[in-house]
Design a protein around this nucleic acid. Structure first.
Lengths: 194, 194
DNA sequence: GTGTATCGGATACAGTCGTACCACAACAGC
DNA sequence: GCTGTTGTGGTACGACTGTATCCGATACAC
């Protein structure tokens, strides 16, 4: 036992336990003891690597965020269709629970969502005051040949907010994935029509 | 003391205390004791009128929901512009924190949001499995003369999800109300163009 | 070999939570 | 007048929380 451990690695493992609990039972069920049990370590260890619960929550969210961004970039880089429309579609489908990983991510974000607004530190990680995704989408749309009168910024704002919400609706069972994908393709067709 | 009291009335008063706490400090701060203090009554009274905390949360949310629906209907009935476009605009602005009441409502909904998914009883009040707003909007849009190719159902789905999210974004400071209203009017113009 | 920083287990502590319980005041019907 | 129901207060209980503390055990530096 007990010598030289990669702290970063250890923290990431424990963070995944936080994700699982948050995704399945909500953030209220994320107690230090529950996390320890889920991660298969002692309570003391969770304290040891994260000092405080607040830190545990903030870091766990940050790790999730990082992984999401890497995943998005990887998916865009890997796809065959590198047209603006193709990239935009991938960007927006990243907001939907189309596989286990994205579903987990979405569930965890949903669990964190409310707490975000009473905890400034979480807010900083969760929703930046800036709008990077909207900005990226806007600049992508500017690059394409869109119908006259279409304003990329306004389209991007609605698309990002809308498909974020629709992703959560899928989680909730209000819509199915195919339905939301149909909505997505409808709006892409409307936007990119000759 | 202790005459015949209108239980319903009493419950609604206490529920507003729940709203205030939830809106300002989040649902985690809504404890029986805090609610009692905020409502200016004893802990025992909160127990007396709601039996259990779960009941308190569910009923408080239900009251808020009712008030929102009444407000929406009243606003639509009262407005001068009874065109489809006018009604649609009012319907969507109801999702934005444009005055104190709608802001309170939105803040409370935000506070409840996460809990909704670990508590089926709350989910039932919060987000019906059905999509009544989307349905209403869809039938409104069908009634209007829209450009060829426009599908009312798909437009409604994105608009409702989108402006729900944008309303929360305003709360969070990611957008301002005028910005979101500009986005709304842009999309209305796009939809209702001759 | 030994000292020591690092790692980890068990447990204690003070606080808060939802709920249950007990007592009593004020009215109702008789 | 009395009796039972309704409304209200105070308080106690057991469970859980985050955090702090005490104390072993390891493995490398010297």
């Amino acid at each position: 036992m007990a010598h030289r451990v990669d702290h970063e690695q250890r923290r990431r493992e424990i963070a995944t336990a936080v994700w699982r609990i948050a995704a399945e039972r909500g953030l209220d069920s994320v107690s230090m003891r529950e996390v320890a049990a889920e991660a298969g370590v002692s309570l003391r260890l969770v304290q040891y690597y994260f000092e405080t619960k607040h830190n545990l929550l903030v870091l766990s969210l940050r790790y999730l965020h990082e992984r999401g961004e890497q995943r998005t970039q990887a998916r865009i880089a890997a796809q065959v269709d590198q047209s603006v429309r193709g990239v935009v579609r991938t960007l927006l489908t990243e907001l939907l629970p189309l596989d286990a990983e994205r579903e987990l991510s979405l569930r965890v974000h949903r669990a964190y969502f409310s707490r975000t607004h009473s905890d400034p530190a979480l807010a900083k990680v969760f929703l930046h005051a800036e709008t990077p995704i909207e900005d990226l989408l806007t600049s992508l749309l500017r690059r394409a040949a869109l119908p006259p009168g279409v304003q990329p910024r306004q389209e991007a704002n609605l698309l990002v907010a809308g498909f974020t919400g629709l992703g959560l609706d899928v989680l909730h069972g209000r819509f199915t994935s195919p339905e939301v994908l149909a909505t997505l393709d409808y709006h892409l067709a409307r936007l990119f029509q000759a």
